[in-house]
Each structure stands twice: as structure tokens, then as C-alpha cells.
Design a protein around this nucleic acid. Sequence first.
DNA 1: AGTTGTAAACTTGTCAAACAAATTTATAAA
DNA 2: TTTATAAATTTGTTTGACAAGTTTACAACT
Lengths: 251, 251
Amino acid sequence: MTEKNILELLSSDESFARKGSSQHIADQLLELIQSGNLKAGDKLPTEGKLVETFRMSRPVVREALRGLSIMGVLESHQGGGTYVTDLSPSRLTKSLQFVIKIDDQTIETLSEARIVVEKEMIRLSVDRITTEELARLQSYLPMGERLKNDPVAFRVMDLEFHSLIWEAAGNPFLKRIAEGLYNTGVEHRRIASELENVLAKSATEHAEIYEALRMRDIERAVAATVGHLNSIRKSTKIALTLPQKEKRDAS
Amino acid sequence: MTEKNILELLSSDESFARKGSSQHIADQLLELIQSGNLKAGDKLPTEGKLVETFRMSRPVVREALRGLSIMGVLESHQGGGTYVTDLSPSRLTKSLQFVIKIDDQTIETLSEARIVVEKEMIRLSVDRITTEELARLQSYLPMGERLKNDPVAFRVMDLEFHSLIWEAAGNPFLKRIAEGLYNTGVEHRRIASELENVLAKSATEHAEIYEALRMRDIERAVAATVGHLNSIRKSTKIALTLPQKEKRDAS
DNA sequence: AGTTGTAAACTTGTCAAACAAATTTATAAA
DNA sequence: TTTATAAATTTGTTTGACAAGTTTACAACT
């Protein structure tokens, strides 16, 4: 979509311009993205054009753009223009990792949500996964064994492993949801993955999930997945209680 | 924590001030929240104070504050000051709702995703719904019967009915997901709700769901929910095949 | 003394103008 | 055609000013 067309869409609603809040500019830009008129990688009109369109001052427009940049929706380059990011869930949820309070309650609810979604997705995957996807899944197993002592690389592999299962489930909506829940907890797991034996256990559990998928055994696959997510939940809780002690000692 | 103490924490890092980006101000404020120095409901220092602390201009500080406001982390009141919100997950993920709202997906995958999520949520609700919530849920039943011939009002009631069940499930993450999936299909259902008997059937199914919840019968509640979503799927598919003809004729 | 109304101060919201810094584009020279 | 330079474009930052809403202080009144 061309920049000119975007401006036409934006200028349509006069009441927003009168109300004049950067929040509404941001909302409207988000709607354009949501409706598909603005896609990942698209270039936005210049600040000057947006000022004309919304009939508001440059600071107000800038606050909206900056707000969406902080959210990870837009990316501005000095002199170069402002672009829509790739809108990957990991980027969008990144800024929220810090904020979502790391307490037991959140870990429990997040973990519960993940189990609810992935329990059903693995059922779909058992039916729908192709032999080719199974082969690719298998290739991650020795990799996991090799990376037991390399948390950073292991987490990359872990994401790819789960992504493949989500993809195999064949439902884009559920895939997006699973990605979102995974990324929301990724910062918590980063801390947990430094603990001893956590990665080795994950590698073993991955193998069990793969085996159940290969055998097309639904109940076994569900049990393996739920067990995997539960052990992650436990290790995460342990990892997050340790630093609290240190804090208490320091103060 | 007092405002004065917050300022001392903020002024520590000189390199950020030199680099001078609102992104870094926002990051630093987020870190204060994450570390617990800034808690939900706390009042932030005034913009003037923050300008002194960071040694940057007011617009830059404002862009950071506005960005966090758009994210749902802060809340500013003209003349009243800026405060940290309650930081609830549902609030923070609200602005990211469009992530799970993507373009032309089939009714089937969307419906499948909704069934997967709501099937498990109703299980949680059976355990967790309070008698008070049950009473409120019951109050929607005669309303539904009365609104069988008023599609607009019925859909408002329908959202409240389902919202109550999502709320009763007690998991903010799942609630947000259910809301997202519901909203994604709302336009399709708007067309379907104009069809004959669709709303009457929905009203009956709502009653069955309520009855199963009241009896705390998990399997019956799951069956009722899945049945409800399946009948919605069918009526939506039917409704969407009709207008396509009209469109084809018009073009 | 207690209450109320008003004015002052304080704080966020908006706008305007200007310059700095980085990129892109146009131009001219090799 | 390629390359180097200059100009135009675009975002980044600063300063100043005023508007609009909220809080606070104070005086007048009961």
C-alpha cells in the first residue's frame, strides 16, 4: 500500500483530530496494521505528512510514533524514515517481559494457560504431523544433548522444536497464541535455564514427546507435553525464589 | 517509595543521559517497576523533576511517558500527575491484542481454535465459578429469550455472558486469548445473527451451559460449550456463503 | 471554630520555531 | 558508468510559551 493511500485512510475521521490525543493517533495506526492496510516492513508517511493529516502538532505525532516504537511496533531511523517492524510476537512481547510481574501467581496462571493450549495442540499435531516434519523434529534431539551446557543455544533450539510442533498442528491462530505464551515466559525461563540439570531434563522430555508423536500415540503425547510444561513450571519457580533470598541478604 | 528516592535511583546512570533517547528513559522506568522500586499505583515524579534528573528536554521525557502510557504501564491525568497502573496482565496485553488478530483465516481454523481454548476454560470455570457469578449468569437467560429478535442487543448480552465465564475461569492470559478469538469472529457472527432461529438456538444453548455449570458437571459443561461453538460455526458458514452470491452478482 | 468560595500554584496537554544529525537523492566530475 | 560532493529530506533534540485541569492555600462567611 502506498503512503498516499495511508494518508487518505487516516484523514477520514475528523473527530479524532479534534480530540487531539497522541493515544488516538497510536490507536488509529494500530488499526491500520490490524486491518492489513499497513503491513510488516511498510514505510510510514513522514512526520510532516502525519502532522498535516491529523492537523496536530509535531510533538503529539511524535509521542504516538515513539510510543509505538517503545512497544516494538514501529522502528524509526534518523533521516531514514519510520517503518513497521516485522511484528514478530517475540519483539512485541519483549518490552512486556520486564513489566509483567514475576510472582508465583503469574507463573502459575501463565503456566496453566500454556498447558491448556499446548495440551490440545499436541493432539492436533499427532494427527497432522508429516513424516518429513517428524524427521526434522528428530534432528533436534542430538542437538539438544550436545547443547546441554550452552543455555543460549539450547533456548534457540527449544523454540525451533516447539515451533515445529505448533506448525504441525496446522492452525495459525493456535500457533500465534502458543508463540505469544511462550515468549511471555521466555525471560523467566532464561533464568531457570542456568540451573543445573534443567536443560538435560528438557532434552530427555523432548525425546519422549518426539517418540510419542512418532508412534502417533495421543495420550502418551499429551502426557509427555504436560509433564514437560510442568517440569518447566517447577524449575522456573525455583529459579525465581533464589534471587529473592540474595536480595533480602543484601538489604 | 517516595518520589525523592526514585529520583536518586534514576540519576545514577550518566551514560543514558548523554545518549539521550526516550527509549532509554522508558527502559529505565520499566526496570524500576520490575525491581519493585516502583509499584502499581505509585505516583511518578513530575515531568519537570524527571527533566532535571535525566538532563534531557521535556519532549523527550514526555515521549517516554507517553510510550509507556500507550503500553498500559502508566496513566497520566492532566494536572493530576502520572501514576503506575495496576499492571494487570490483561491490561498490558490489551494493546497487543491485534497480534492474534490476523487476516483472512478460514472459519474452520478460527472455530477450531476457539473450541480448543473454551473447552478447557469451561473446565476451569466449573471448578472456580462462585455462586454469585452463577446468579449473574442466570440473569442473562431470560434476557436472551427476550432479545431473540434484537440481534444488536443480543450480541451485547452474548459477550457479557461469555465474559463472565472467562472471568470465572480465573486466568487473565486465557481470558485475553478468549476475548481475542471472540472478537476476531464477531463480524462474521454479526451477519449470522440476522438469520432466522440462530439467536433462539443460542439462547437455548446458553441455558444448557448455565445448567451444567450450576450442577458442577464438567463433562456436561464441556459438551454444551463445544455444541454451542459448533452450532455457531455452522450458522456462520451458512451466513457467509449467502452474501458471497450477492457480492458476485454486484460486481 | 468550621465551612465554603475564590484565587494562586502546580502539573500535564498542546503548539510553534529552530537547529542538529543522519540518511537519501540529485548533481557533477572523473 | 562510476564515484565524489552537495543539496534536500527526515528524524532527533532543545527551548519557550500558553492552555487546561487539579490541587492547595487562604480569606471570607456562617
